[in-house]
Design a binder for these strands. Structure first.
Length: 375
DNA sequence: TCTGGGGTCCTAGGACCC
DNA sequence: TCTGGGGTCCTAGGACCC
């Protein structure tokens, strides 16, 4: 989806069309009827989640601090994110696509992979039908890349944003893919980009020209070999149609840094609140946590995590808090914090766990391992 | 003027087991 | 007194993505 959150907001406020609009920051109590909040004079933490193309023209980008964005585009309109609406519209566009092509891999709120292998129809025609269906169902534009695999489709979908439709075959790789910067490949982030630049490798073509052995030597067996394959547009991954979550978490960045001793009560209150929200998430989704972790970010932005495997899977707020305390015992709390998070890992389906526990399977399993025959 | 929140996957060391 | 080969689980950190 193109500039997804911002585009959804433009549906709600059509009068903002063409204007620089930024989604981000915390929900504000001021009603929009009193006029839109401008970025000018913004004070506080928070980043740009999404922005319109008009805002991008000022140099504003996703992930940029709002204070910096305010300098670049002081008259841009700032709207808080409304994730419930974005989720609802997300389900709508995915359903519209599924009516035409049911084999879909979910890639988050605004992105999907679609397997068109068994969908009849001429390629360009089919892609246009998908775009039309999304537009019809949501009023929003999207950008599509049709290629032989996921790696290339992801790159192709970015080539003509917004409202793009790009079709590539393997023969197009030298002309369409190789001129692009390495970072256009999904999986090559800032660190790898910098390191590659150190070897004078800037484009995907330059990466493709590098020896596989050289890449393995400097980037490791697995990542190095993958870099080589990716640069040649090779990718044999299947679509992942359904998956179970591995972890569920809640975290929050404070308005101001808090000290574990001076602001003990405030921090305790925040932790309790995070545990309550996480407990609700677990309950709603039907999972129990086999491990509980905490995440701390200090005033210098350094981050630390601690994990605790619990003897019995749990999901209620009090138990989460007790487990979090076990983790906190192992941390030196002598510096101010800017973020606190809690995470449920080693998830087990509540229903399945309860069924096993009732049938005594757990006891049998423990017995099996306890009595393992020795040589 | 510092840098959100929710995730996944990978690596690597150590404990522990047969 | 010194040392194997295979495996799993736990924990911590980091890169990357939406």
């Amino acid at each position: 989806m193109d500039a997804y959150f911002a585009s959804v907001e433009l549906l709600r406020y059509p009068e903002l069309k063409g204007q620089p609009v930024v989604i981000g920051g915390r929900r504000h109590t001021a009603a929009p009827s009193e006029g839109f909040q401008r970025l000018r004079g913004y004070a506080g933490r928070g980043v740009v989640t999404t922005c319109t193309y008009a805002a991008r023209a000022f140099g504003v980008r996703s992930g940029m601090g709002l204070m910096k964005a305010a300098v670049l585009a002081p008259d841009a309109i700032l709207l808080p994110g409304d994730y419930e609406t974005y989720s609802r519209v997300s389900r709508t566009f995915k359903s519209a696509v599924a009516e035409i092509a049911p084999c879909i891999e979910d890639r988050g709120i605004d992105e999907i992979f679609i397997d068109l292998t068994d969908v009849p129809g001429e390629t360009r025609n089919l892609a246009q039908r998908l775009k039309d269906a999304v537009k019809e169902a949501t009023g929003l534009s999207c950008s599509i890349g049709v290629t032989p695999n996921k790696l290339l489709s992801k790159i192709a979908s970015e080539l003509q944003k917004p409202d793009g439709l790009t079709i590539l075959s393997l023969d197009d790789i030298p002309t369409r893919i190789w001129p692009l910067p390495c970072s256009a490949i999904n999986g090559i982030g800032p660190k790898a980009t910098t390191k590659l630049e150190g070897f004078q490798i800037r484009t995907i073509g330059e990466l493709a020209a590098a020896d596989a052995s050289f890449l393995v030597e400097h980037f490791g067996k697995s990542y190095g070999a993958w870099l080589h394959e990716a640069s040649h547009g090779r990718d044999d991954r299947d679509l992942t149609i359904s998956r179970e979550p591995k972890s569920i978490s809640r975290e929050t960045t404070f308005e101001r840094d808090l000290h574990p001793r001076q602001n003990r009560e405030e921090l305790t209150h925040i932790l309790v609140s995070l545990c309550e929200r996480l407990a609700q998430d677990l309950e709603r989704k039907g999972y129990l946590a086999g491990s509980v972790g905490i995440k701390l970010r200090f005033d210098d932005f350094s981050t630390l995590t601690r994990d605790h495997a619990v003897p019995m899977p749990l999901a209620d707020a009090t138990a989460l808090r007790d487990a979090a305390r076990e983790c906190l015992k192992r941390v030196n709390l002598d510096r101010k914090l800017r973020l606190l998070g809690i995470r449920a890992g080693a998830l087990v389906k509540r229903e399945e766990y309860l069924a096993h526990a009732a049938s005594g399977d757990r006891v049998a399993e423990a017995g099996l391992f306890g009595n393992w025959p020795s040589e």
